[in-house]
Design a protein around this nucleic acid. Sequence first.
DNA 1: TTTGATTGTGAGTGATCACTACCTAAGTCG
DNA 2: CGACTTAGGTAGTGATCACTCACAATCAAA
Lengths: 183, 183
Amino acid sequence: MSISAERKTAAERREAVLDAALDEFALRGLDGASTEAIAAAAGISQPYVFRLFGTKKDLFKAVITRCFRETLELFQRAAEGKRGPEALEAMGAAYMDEMLPDRMRLRGQMQAYAACDDPEIRDVVRNGYGDLVAYAERVSGAGPPEITQFFATGMLLNVIASMGVQDGGEPWASRLLAGCEKP
Amino acid sequence: MSISAERKTAAERREAVLDAALDEFALRGLDGASTEAIAAAAGISQPYVFRLFGTKKDLFKAVITRCFRETLELFQRAAEGKRGPEALEAMGAAYMDEMLPDRMRLRGQMQAYAACDDPEIRDVVRNGYGDLVAYAERVSGAGPPEITQFFATGMLLNVIASMGVQDGGEPWASRLLAGCEKP
DNA sequence: TTTGATTGTGAGTGATCACTACCTAAGTCG
DNA sequence: CGACTTAGGTAGTGATCACTCACAATCAAA
């Protein structure tokens, strides 16, 4: 080791790499991201990234898998003990409060959708998204119109975050955001 | 010239390159796309792409600029002679009918949002999207709730197309799509 | 203390790729 | 014809990058 940094368990390193990879992938995309940069941000050498995750694509899949899982957990926490429409409302509020400020996670989601031409990645995204929809339907008992509106609003928020217009700079964007709040 | 293909005007070649580039960028993204592949699909040599468009990023910007302009024109055609809520409805129907089947255009849009970390690209996307919102607001006279719902639905359709779940394979996706039709 | 597993790296490597420098052929007009 | 402009190509080039291989340091248990 170069300056003899502390040894960590492989599991800890994996988490660090996932954190670093989320940022890099969110900003530059699957192909634009550099494993060199990810390794540097995670504080390890670049070959070790490959030892831990196999290929760049596998790392990407691991990142979005974790991302979807955490989003599902966010929904579950928000809807805990609630049923029906108010569960949906709580989930929406939680998404606005916790997810919207986390630009990297939002952008990472967009990169995942954008990379869906690859069948392996598409499978991960489909499963992740499908789980979110299934949970929302189950806990809220709502049907197409409400569920669709819920997820449509979420996707609009993602796009707004991608464009970086959520800070009031663009009047039209502020109006779109205003329409996201429940009446 | 290799086998002496016909000479075309630069403007015609530019259109051919834009067509080819939309497909390549839509599938592989800004960084993943290869100018070699774009040139081949357009039927010219790779250096000529650079003579026509300068850099890969400039080509990407040209592609999404044209994409947004054509979407605006689609809206204008659909809303022609209409005002108020029915203009919005006609635009929505046109988007479903003409845009949804055009997978490349949808995916290209997603790639544009995903590439928004770059300031130049972000500007193009902001302007393009802002124009769409401004037109929808103006022609429909609608406010935040309706306009937001309109664009939110559009973004959900983009994501659904990205995931390739619009063909009835996934029940939850069919339910989401059902919720996109006006009640 | 030796053995074996685990954590980690330095030094490549072949491929790809955006982009350039320079050249050629085809139209066009006097 | 000759001069000029426009369309288009050939042949690189330097850089980047995903990924490999062989090796080293550290830990844990027998």
